[in-house]
């Protein structure tokens, strides 16, 4: 794959946990994230890639942004009432993210399934930064971070994003960032807000070294590039990158059950 960004700080963990992670490294699944602004075509590419992976013999799990059955209804109801402040939205989405990570993503990876994340934590970071929240605070809120093996990033121009979104429907209140722009027209607000989100994405792509897929290329060209980059890619070693998040999970109910289950296999 790729050059790697500055390595995560290695926490002091028990030898037992590190041994467990080391043993699991060969059989664990890969986590692949699809990131980019609204209208970039992430979902289309994620679906195509899933089919291809399944054809190659992978078992695949998909996880989508703000979709945990625990928190999603809360976020939906509050969005409908337009009652969310920026911090509150960020914290609810972080709770949703953590819950999916612990309940869906990590168990699937542990069992050797490939996980495709249709938007991962970088979605939260870029949108919340565009809402003016402090980046350092957000990183802590989402911590301990769990790094994906690969992040595919789909940049597009603002005009294309607005065109694609408007062709289907009027942007929703929070999607258009009307809570921060105070612009009454959803599409004008969407343009203003997405310009900020795109700036944040560009910074994240640079710092975290995403693999860029030109979102304005024909769909099949993008798909071919994704396959190519995937085949050239390498994994991020759990013990070096994700030890802290995994150690916490392994001490929880779900993680413990997974370990027990795996040892009986």
């Amino acid at each position: 794959m790729t050059r790697q960004p500055a390595r995560a700080r290695k926490p002091s963990l028990s030898k037992e946990v590190l041994d467990l992670l080391h043993k699991r490294e060969a059989t664990r699944g890969l986590l692949i994230a699809f990131e980019g602004p609204d209208g970039a075509g992430k979902t289309t590419q994620r679906k195509l890639f899933r089919r291809w992976l399944e054809g190659q013999g992978h078992t695949v799990t998909t996880t989508k942004w703000a979709s945990s059955p625990l928190v999603r209804p809360l976020i939906k109801a509050r969005k409908r009432a337009r009652a969310l402040g920026a911090e509150e939205l960020c914290l609810l989405q972080a709770a949703d993210f953590r819950h999916r990570l612990e309940q869906d993503v990590l168990p699937a990876l542990w069992r050797g399934r490939t996980v495709l994340a249709d938007q991962y934590l970088f979605t939260g970071l870029s949108r919340d930064a565009a809402r003016g929240l402090d980046f350092d605070w957000m990183l802590h809120v989402y911590g301990p971070l769990f790094w994906p093996d690969i992040v595919f990033y789909f940049p597009i121009s603002l005009d294309i994003a607005a065109q694609r979104v408007a062709s289907k429907r009027s942007p929703k209140y929070y999607e258009a960032g009307q809570d921060v722009t105070n612009v009454a027209d959803p599409l004008s607000s969407f343009r203003q807000f997405q310009a900020r989100v795109m700036r944040e994405y560009e910074n994240l792509a640079l710092v975290f070294q995403f693999l860029t897929i030109d979102g304005e290329q024909p769909i099949y060209e993008q798909h071919k590039r994704i396959r190519k980059l995937f085949l050239e890619g390498s994994r991020r070693v759990w013990g070096e990158w994700n030890a802290e998040a995994l150690a916490e999970w392994l001490t929880l109910g779900v993680g413990r059950q997974e370990v027990k289950h795996a040892s009986h296999e």
Binding site: S68, L70, A95, H99, E102, E248, L252
Partner: peptide, 8 residues
């Protein structure tokens, strides 16, 4: 679905 961890 009420299975959150202390962190959540």
């Amino acid at each position: 679905h009420l299975t959150p961890s202390p962190r959540t």
